[in-house]
Amino acid sequence: MWLPALFLIIGLCIGILTNVSIPADYINYLSIAVLAALDTLFGGIRAQLEEKFDQSVFVSGFFFNVSLAALLAFLGTQLGIDLYLAAIFAFGVRLFNNLASIRRILLLKYKQRKDAV
């Protein structure tokens, strides 16, 4: 598990060290991309805990969600529709759903272990 952690740190460093400034209009797309990434990540964790995790689904879902979320938000801005709000809403709801599921599963597992002991 050391390789993903190392890459996470490398990614953080690259993100901090890049000195590219994005116009303020595009910050919405970036935050939606981050939200999508977090959602997919927690979705993956949940699937892992429910033992129906599929690696290809997770990886493709991650990149697809991130790029599609940003693209949709961009398209919405071009068309004059605040589509990024919908994206934030959808991803946010799913994020909290996933978090709740993870918490419940963890609690369940903890209880089962306690009962077993």
């Binding site: 390789l3 993903p4 990614g11 993100g15 981050v34 990540l41 990886v59």
Partner: peptide
């Protein structure tokens, strides 16, 4: 390696967004 790539992108996005 695939996970590593995912975390690389995640880290980059997080850091970049935070900085921005």
């Amino acid at each position: 390696f695939l996970y590593a790539c995912v975390f690389l992108v995640l880290g980059f996005l997080l850091a970049f967004n935070y900085k921005f």
